[in-house]
Each structure stands twice: as C-alpha cells, then as structure tokens.
Design a protein around this nucleic acid. Structure first.
Lengths: 318, 318
DNA sequence: CTCATTTATACTCAATATGAGTATAATGGA
DNA sequence: TCCATTATACTCATATTGAGTATAAATGAG
C-alpha cells in the first residue's frame, strides 16, 4: 500500500511480475415472482446459476451480464445490480512458472418477469426450495420444530454462540428479521447443517436440514441476492420490475409477501401504498371469484424519481 | 450463458482461449472520525486512495486488504466490508496476440480510529474536502446558493432532468436524503460540474463546484463508501468501530453527525440510544468546560448480536 | 331469486414512535 | 456568588403503526 502502488494502479495496464494473472467469471441471479412464488433462473436442473467468463467485447461488467441474459432469454433486463465479488482460494490457485492463476467471481442480481426459457436444463426454480426456513408465510415455526435441536448441539454451553443463533433466527425473544437470509445460511454452513458443508469437508456428519444443494458456492450467492432484495424493497420501489403492466393491490401484496417470506397486514399495506403515491388507478377491473378488484399501475413519474420512496413492511400475525 | 459455461466455471481453473487475462487491484477506503471530522486515509497528498495488486499469498480478497492495511498502519482493522467491483473499459484494455488484458478494481470500506501514519505523502483528509455539499451541519443552503444555477442550465426544460435533480439534492419540496451521496456525485459528474468530468472529456467546460479531485475514479469510490456508511449507521451499530473505549454521549452524537453530515436533535438522539440498549455506563466522567459528562462504552454483548439494532437519525432543524 | 361465500374497500381506535422544546442539575471561572 | 456552559430529565402535541371491524360488490348453489 505505497504511493508507488497507487500510481501504478491508476495508470495504464500493470505488467510487472509481482501480480498474478486472474480469470474473471460473471454469475447472474435472475429473479421473477409468479403469483406467490419467487423464482430464480437456474441451469443443470436447478443445481447452478447462469455463469460465464467476462469477455473482451463487454464494455463493462454490467454490460457483460446484460449481453448474456438478453442473448439467452431474448428479454430485456430491467433492474440489475452488482451483488458481490469473491476470489475462491481453493479453486484455480495453481502456480505455473512465473504466472499464477486464480479465479474471481462477480455476481449480479437482475429482476425480470418469468418467461419460458427454451433450454435443455434451464429452468425457473422456487427460491424457497433452497431455503425452506426462509418462507414463513404458512408456517413460521419450521425452525422452532426442525432445526432447533441440531442448533442446540452446536451451541453447547457457549453464550456467544447462543446469542448469535438467537439474533439470526429470531429465537428466545429476538425478533425475526427477514433481511438476515445470508447470515442465516452462513451460520447453517458453519454448523454443518447444509449439504455443501459436508461436500466442502466442513461438516462432522449428522443431520442436514432440508434445502436443495447447488454447485460451488452458488447457493451462498443466491442467499446474498435474497438478503439484498428483502432489504431493498423496504426503501426502494423495485417491485416495479417484477409486476405486469397492471395488477390488483392483492397481487402486489402477494408479490411482496413472496419476497419477504412473510404475510402482510392487508389494510395497513394499502395504507402504506396510498401514502407513498406510487400507484395510479386504471379504468379496468380484475374478474375473479369475489368482488372484482380495481387494477392499478405504477405511476409513470416513478421512473424518474426512482431514488426515493421506501416500502416498509407491516407485518401480520395469525 | 450455457450449461457448458456453468460447468466450466464451477470446476477447476479455466484455461480455454475464449477468456481474457485479467489483472485485479484492491482499493481501500479507510475511514476514521476524529472529533467532528470524518477522515479518509489517502496517498499522494490526498489525491489517491491506497491501492495495490491482489497477491497470490492472499487467502481471500478481504484477507488481502487486511494484510496491507495492517502492514502499513500497524493497527488491526475492525469492520471491513466490500464496496464495489468495476472493470474500467478505458484502462488496460489492450489486445496482444491471443492474450487480452484488462484491469478489475475491487474496493473495500474499512473503519478504524485515526493514527499517525508515518509515510511520505500518506495523510488523513477531511472527507468533505471532496464533497463540500454533503456537509450540511453548519450551512445546509450551500447547494441552494452555489450549485443551483449551474444545475438549472443542465436541466433546461426537461421535466425528467428536473425531477432527478430535485430528488437527488432535496430541492423543490423533496426531502434531503443523506444516503444519496453517490447518486449526487454521479449526477454532478454527468452535469460536468466536477473536475473529473473535464479530465475524462465529459464536460463542455464552464464552472466547477468546489471539491478536491482524485486520481482515476477514486473520488467516485469514496462517494460509494460515504453512501454505504450513511445508510448503514441507520440499521447497524457500526459506529462502534469508530469510537474510543469510552466516550460521552455528546461525543458519540458528534461522530454520527460527522458521518451523516447533519445536526441531530440532542435529547431525541439520547432517547433512541436508550431504547436500543447499546450502551452501558462506566464509573467515570469526562471533565470539560461545563458539567462533566458521564462516560459510556458499548455493551460487550453487542459484538455477538451485531446483526441487530438500527440507529435511525432524528434530524434537527435550526 | 335469495342467500351464503368470497374478495374488495373503507373506517376506527389504541399503542407507540417521533419532533420539538422546557426545566433542572453540575461544573469552572470571573 | 453568580454566570456561562454543558449534562440530564421531563413534557407534550402529532404522526405512524398494529390490529381489527364494518360495509360493498361480485359468484354460484339451492
């Protein structure tokens, strides 16, 4: 961290020998919500996220991701956001003469609407297939019933571990915080309760809790995306990208509930929406089993103001 | 984005020809708050952030940043968080035979306490030296007075541009949002009102607003750090890392104010602190000019619970 | 055709949180 | 001793939130 380094770094390409050669890979987490199911686009029958190398033709990282997704799905990608960059030390770290090799992965979160993607093993998967404990809409006691005993074993008599588990999983007085999806996954990994831990040689064997495994650390990346998304819907109107042109208020509520993994209080949710002035009425109604619901759309001006309003979550209890 | 790519990506090192060779650089934004001044560690007399290449000896990206900072400052680094990764298309994008070269920068935010750093041109600089308009503690009307006319010229008759400026800078009815430090800097760049824009050939010439320039896009990275930090103090107790062992409530308030760039309401700030149960009293008092203030420290248990409480900002008006 | 069922929408009300300000307590120094 | 200065403790009106009830507009069974 010397001045020389800084000068080199901000100049043109560095070609000195100290530095190693690196391969960069882009990973995309594409999310869509259909009805009440939050989905992610996967490859290999749900065991991997779309990924590929950064190519020279890409003007920027974001442009690289966009290019792929649009080539693959023939669908323009709306909102897109960088998630995280990591350099896995265990993979690709081989030295060959003067040149050392290493792989860096840069992940992105994109929001779309679900479309039929014609590929061999390409498919949209329910996100909660990978994190069953994150879906508390129908049964918020899943953790209480299935995971708690296993966690207790790991905690043992350590007060510090107990505090961490309670804070992450909302046990013993702590409130449940939906944003903590990533810390929860990481904690389960550390406890050896997800299959990836055993695969990577971290687990001492024992019970695994439900949840489908993915290649490499793709499931961790997906957890990062879920965390980010849940935090963001509370202060940015990004649901926009996930909804059709017009929709009923209940449909919008179901979409937010799907992402948050929580039931929301109906009238309070509507009051919040009204106070934020995000929507405008259309002249149409959605037919259905009961009284027809008025259809709404997002206000056109919203696109310009993007940076503003927040959608906080009025949580409902059964 | 085919299944083949995904398989390659998640296997061992990729050596096929499609992919280009990449250099990775790590950039650190080290922040400390001393008294009422938020500072950042810089090189080259305040014109660059500490940066250097990713080395093979680094187990992970974070470990790489930690290693440097600790080697340079001889001070253990507490909180550290990844900011953003970007691949500048304009620098280092040269093709040489089969091998193409490109540079990727990965930036990190770290929190410390300020210490004398014995280096030639290494220094701690007031962050608001780079973003004078972000400090609204003494004079919240700076934008109103100095920048507005210039912005008006760029807006012209475009309603969309006007809406964007108003939302970003809290003009014309929109509330000021301190988290938007990055969008604000980006908007000023787009408008050609910061010197970097002229250097990069984006500006059409004209008045520049105050604020010191930095090499490459380091000032943009610093804006990213400020945005992230301001957003985060509202929902995570990270001020912890910036304060000494024990401190008075007013000192803590001054620290938060320095980061937020806003004055806070004294008694409401204290009420918020009390309700969150973050602090505990010590037996000591700080001597000073008036009545001595009781000294507090962060509760030990806080470290374990880290993931919890939020510190919202009760804004004060003069 | 009537009524139970289902969903939509409108209101109400208590509890809590927030913004803003006043009153009182300890200091050191003129 | 009194005053300037900072600390700490209360007060109070208003806004926001959580939770729930009442009424409206459809469908379909009988």
């Amino acid at each position: 961290m010397s001045y020389d380094n800084a000068k080199r770094a901000s100049g043109t390409a560095m070609k000195t020998g100290i530095q190693q050669t690196i391969h960069a890979e882009l990973i995309a987490v594409l999310v869509a919500v259909t009805g009440s199911v939050p989905r992610v686009l996967t490859l290999a029958d749900g065991s991997a996220l779309p990924a590929g190398p950064l190519e020279l033709t890409h003007r920027s990282l974001q442009a690289g991701v966009r290019a792929w997704v649009e080539r693959q799905t023939h669908h323009p990608l709306g909102y897109i956001e960088q998630l995280y960059t990591f350099a896995d030390p265990t993979r690709g770290a081989t030295v060959a003469g003067d040149q050392a090799e290493r792989s860096i992965s840069i992940s992105y979160l994109g929001l779309t609407r679900e479309i039929a993607s014609g590929g061999d093993t390409v498919s949209w998967q329910d996100i909660y297939r990978y994190f069953p404990w994150e879906d508390r809409r129908s049964d918020p006691t899943l953790i209480e019933r299935t995971i708690r005993a296993e966690m207790g074993r790991w905690v043992g008599t350590s007060a510090e571990r107990a505090a961490r588990v309670n804070a992450c999983f909302g046990l013993d007085g702590s409130p449940w915080n939906e944003d903590l999806a990533l810390p929860r996954y990481e904690l389960l990994y550390e406890m050896g309760l997800v299959r990836e831990a055993a695969r990577d040689g971290q687990s001492k064997g024992g019970e695994f809790i439900h949840g489908a495994m993915m290649q490499a650390d793709h499931r961790r990346i997906l957890a990062t995306a879920l965390s980010r998304l849940r935090a963001k819907i509370k202060y940015r109107a990004i649901v926009y990208e996930l909804m059709p042109e017009s929709f009923s208020l209940l449909e919008l509520q179901r979409c937010v509930e799907a992402l948050a993994g929580q039931r929301l209080h109906k009238s309070n949710f509507r009051r919040l929406l009204a106070s934020q002035n995000l929507l405008e009425e259309t002249a149409h109604y959605a037919p259905g089993v009961g009284r027809p619901a008025k259809l709404f759309r997002f206000r056109a001006a919203l696109l310009a103001e993007r940076a503003i309003a927040g959608t906080r979550l009025p949580i409902a209890r059964p």
